[in-house]
Computed example of a mutant assay.
Amino acid sequence: MIYASLKLIHVLSIVLWIGGMFFAHAFLRPAVQSLEPPVRIRLMHDVLKRFFTTVQVVVLLVLFSGLWMIGRVAKETVQAGLPFNMPLGWTVMATLGILMIVVFGHIRFALFKRLSRAVSASDWPAGGAALGSIRIWVGVNLILGVATIAATLLLG
């Protein structure tokens, strides 16, 4: 029951993270393009602040639940007298997941900080540039997230 509960938390956290990136990238950003820069940049800042705060929690949930599930399977396998060989799909998932966390860290603690400074200073060109950088890196993380899901489902 614990394993199933942690797997549910793991999957729902990933759905929230990747779904949120897709929503922001494919729907929110294009919809606000017609707004004046001060309004658009403030709105995106406020939305991203909320989303990134949630993703910080989600990242911890994904990391904890994933490590716990791998550790539990490894422990049970070794206790049964068998060698533990992590499946390729799990290895790819873990590797890409850690890369996604690193990319998120860059977005949250470097690029979003630039955006926050620009909004505080009402420097709309700098805010637009920061949003452009965030968009690129969110796109990278979105691709990594989809690749992670695909590898997990296709490689087992």
Rank of each mutant, 00 (worst) to 15 (best):
D46N: 12
A110Y: 09
S5D: 06
L153V: 15
G19D: 10
I107Q: 05
K7E: 08
G66M: 03
V103R: 02
W68V: 11
V32L: 08
L63A: 14
D46Q: 10
I136P: 01
S13R: 10
G132C: 04
R117V: 10
A129C: 01
I101Q: 05
F22T: 09
I14Y: 07
L88V: 15
R72V: 03
P37Y: 04
A4C: 03
L82H: 14
D123A: 13
L67W: 13
A94L: 15
S120N: 15
L67S: 14
S120H: 10
I41Q: 07
D46Y: 03
R72T: 12
G145T: 03
F27E: 01
L35T: 01
V62W: 05
V11R: 06
G127N: 03
L48T: 00
I2W: 13
L60N: 14
R135W: 10
L35E: 06
L35M: 15
L155W: 06
P30S: 12
A31S: 14
L88F: 15
M93N: 08
L61E: 10
G97A: 06
H10E: 10
A151N: 05
L111N: 02
V59Y: 11
Q79G: 05
W90S: 13
N85T: 14
P83S: 14
P83V: 10
A126Q: 15
V103A: 11
G105C: 11
H25W: 11
L6M: 15
S116W: 02
M21Y: 03
Q79E: 14
T152K: 07
L115I: 10
S120C: 08
P125R: 05
A26E: 11
A26H: 12
V59E: 10
G71Q: 08
V32S: 02
F22I: 15
L8G: 08
I9L: 15
S133R: 15
F104M: 08
I41E: 10
H25M: 04
D46M: 08
K75I: 01
V138Y: 04
A121K: 12
I18P: 01
V32E: 01
T152S: 09
V47A: 09
L12P: 00
R135P: 00
M44F: 06
P30K: 08
A118C: 07
R108M: 09
L35F: 12
L155S: 07
L67C: 12
A80C: 07
I107H: 08
F109H: 14
R114Q: 15
L35Q: 13
L61H: 11
G81W: 09
P38W: 04
A118W: 05
V92C: 09
R29H: 12
I70A: 09
W68Q: 04
L142Y: 07
R114H: 13
F22W: 07
S13D: 05
S13T: 10
V39C: 00
K49I: 03
P125Q: 04
S13N: 09
H106C: 00
G128N: 13
R114I: 01
G145F: 00
T91E: 13
V146T: 04
V73Q: 01
T53I: 14
V138E: 07
Y3A: 11
G66Y: 02
L82F: 08
F23D: 06
Q79P: 01
G105W: 14
I143W: 00
H25Y: 13
M44K: 01
L153H: 10
V47W: 06
A129H: 09
S65W: 06
